[in-house]
């Protein structure tokens, strides 16, 4: 029983972390058909800004609870800024290129941002654990969990809800769905596709940065951070179906639970369980679980 609860809890916590990262990735893909490798950099930038700003904030003797606001603010402002610069400064010149070329474009961006991060923050580690430890811990079935991780679950549910609500219940969300479904028709109908692209990309970047900022207190922020998460996020998104936010949620849950099960039952399988699940899902559902239907060109 303890084992099952541990597996469930670990799986869900890991999944909520994955989902916040993957949500931005899948959103950008859904709208713009860009599989954004630089998402890893946005994540890293979020983590670095969060950790360093909280560090400065706490060094000023401010109350620790305020650091949550600093984390959030850092992710929003810096994520939006970087996303805007990347989209306006680079990506818009590349629209219309092959999907694979776009992956390479964002790979180039990732390489550049990796070094920009090094130039700004150096290579030494940043750790700001205060927000992580402040909330204490609680026991479930005899196992302690950090309350911060529960907050993470909440945040990820909130992100999922906001995305769903934004896409399905607001006017601009519905317009966005039109763009997702058929870009050309949308633009002939007078929808400003360019603006939609910019807004989507910025939201995606903010989500990436948010994931980073929320992760920062529990880890040591170091170079190479972004490259590590990007393939994980890819796996989640591909399992769920590229471009589907709900799919990303399910994908994250599958990956999280599968990994937790491996760790508890057969630790040796930890490394390939994610790719194994991915290969398995794709073998039966070539487009992932919840792919958005796309017309086949003949």
């Amino acid at each position: 029983m303890k084992l099952v609860i541990a597996m469930l809890m670990d799986g869900v916590i890991y999944a909520s972390w994955l989902f916040v990262i993957a949500a931005g990735l899948t959103l950008i893909y859904g709208v713009m058909k860009i599989l954004n490798m630089a998402h890893g950099s946005f994540y890293a930038i979020g983590a670095y800004s969060g950790a360093s700003l909280v560090g400065i904030y706490l060094a000023g003797g401010n109350p620790v609870w305020g650091s949550y606001l600093v984390l959030l603010g850092a992710a929003l402002v810096i994520g939006a800024l970087v996303g805007l610069m990347a989209e306006r400064g680079l990506l818009r010149f590349m629209y219309g290129r092959d999907e694979v070329v776009m992956i390479l474009v964002t790979y180039g961006l990732l390489l550049i941002l990796e070094d920009v991060i090094k130039l700004i923050w150096g290579v030494e580690a940043y750790s700001t654990y205060q927000p992580y430890t402040l909330l204490g811990r609680s026991k479930i079935a005899g196992l302690s969990f950090a309350n911060y991780d529960f907050v993470l679950i909440g945040v990820s549910l909130l992100v999922g809800f906001l995305l769903w609500w934004g896409l399905n219940r607001t006017r601009s969300g519905k317009l966005l769905q039109v763009v997702i479904h058929d870009r050309n028709t949308a633009s002939t109908q007078g929808i400003n596709v360019t603006r939609m692209f910019t807004v989507t990309f910025v939201i995606g970047a903010v989500l990436g940065a948010l994931a980073g900022a929320l992760t920062a207190p529990g880890i040591s922020v170091m170079p190479g951070l972004g490259v590590e998460v990007i393939v994980l996020a890819f796996a989640v998104v591909v399992i769920g179906g590229l471009g589907s936010v709900g799919g990303a949620l399910v994908g994250a849950l599958i990956v999280g639970l599968a990994r937790a099960a491996a760790v508890h039952i057969y630790p040796d399988a930890e490394l390939f369980v994610i790719y194994g699940v991915m290969a398995l899902v794709l073998a039966f559902r070539p487009q992932g679980l919840f792919a958005i239907a796309s017309a086949r060109k003949i």
Partner: peptide, 17 residues
């Protein structure tokens, strides 16, 4: 004995184990 991936960063499940 746990062997998580290098640079994994998230050790929740391992800690539970």
């Amino acid at each position: 004995k746990q062997f998580p991936k290098i640079y994994a960063g998230q050790y929740g499940a391992e800690i539970s184990a």
